[in-house]
């Protein structure tokens, strides 16, 4: 704090006028200003990033991102809804009739062409995310008494999208087939979703 006692020279008035001798210094200063400015911007961005990243799923959330389901109790023709990552997953034990109907569809008729075989790992088990691809409602068709739509699959009550027995969009506003989640058969009747 002792420095405060020092008198300050008169300043600008005493500065020699900026002449040609000062010019080489000029570009160096500009580079310095630029480099410092760029580094400051990088620093601020690096400082802000962890805050933004903290909003991504935390490790405990990611750890819960798989669900195991035992299919053994599910009889022919029955359906089961399980929760995976907070969304419903539809599992239907399809009858041979349903499988034949799904396989017989002409791909040219479909809005989102996909063969039935491409949508299942084992034909009798259809596993898909039960969220309408239109605006995220949960379609009806899981319970025995539910409306299943004209194609015997699922019917979305929000805007009338209709899905067939392979979960493909056939009618209504939805643009895509119901999404197939990643899953594997751990045994013949045990699947792990996610």
């Amino acid at each position: 704090m002792q420095n405060a006692a020092k008198p300050i020279p008169a300043g600008p008035a005493q500065v020699p006028p900026q002449g040609a001798a000062d010019q080489p210094d000029h570009s160096r200063r500009d580079f310095l200003t630029l480099a410092t400015g760029a580094m400051t911007v990088v620093g601020v961005a690096a400082f802000v990033w962890p805050f933004i990243n903290s909003m991504n799923p935390a490790s405990d959330v990611l750890a819960l991102s798989t669900t195991e389901v035992d299919l053994a109790p599910l009889k022919l023709g029955q359906a089961l809804t399980v929760v995976w990552r907070g969304s419903p997953v539809f599992i239907r034990h399809r009858t041979p009739d349903e499988i034949t109907a799904a396989a017989a569809v002409n791909l040219a008729e479909l809005r989102d062409p996909e063969t039935d075989a491409a949508r299942v790992k084992k034909p009798q088990w259809l596993v898909m995310v039960g969220v309408c691809t239109h605006l995220g409602c949960v379609p009806l068709g899981q319970a025995p008494g539910d409306p299943k739509g004209e194609y015997g699959g699922w019917f979305c009550p929000c805007h009338g999208s209709q899905y067939d027995t392979a979960g493909r969009i056939r009618k209504g506003p939805a643009p895509q087939n119901l999404v197939i989640p990643p899953y594997v058969f751990e045994t013949d009747t045990l699947i792990k979703i996610g």
Binding site: G11, P12, Q14, V15, L32
Partner: peptide, 23 residues
Amino acid sequence: GFLVILTGLFFVLKRRIAKRLGL
């Protein structure tokens, strides 16, 4: 490491401006 370099740059910059202003 980053902060030490950046702070050093600020210091050099500050000294030059001070010189220019005759401070």
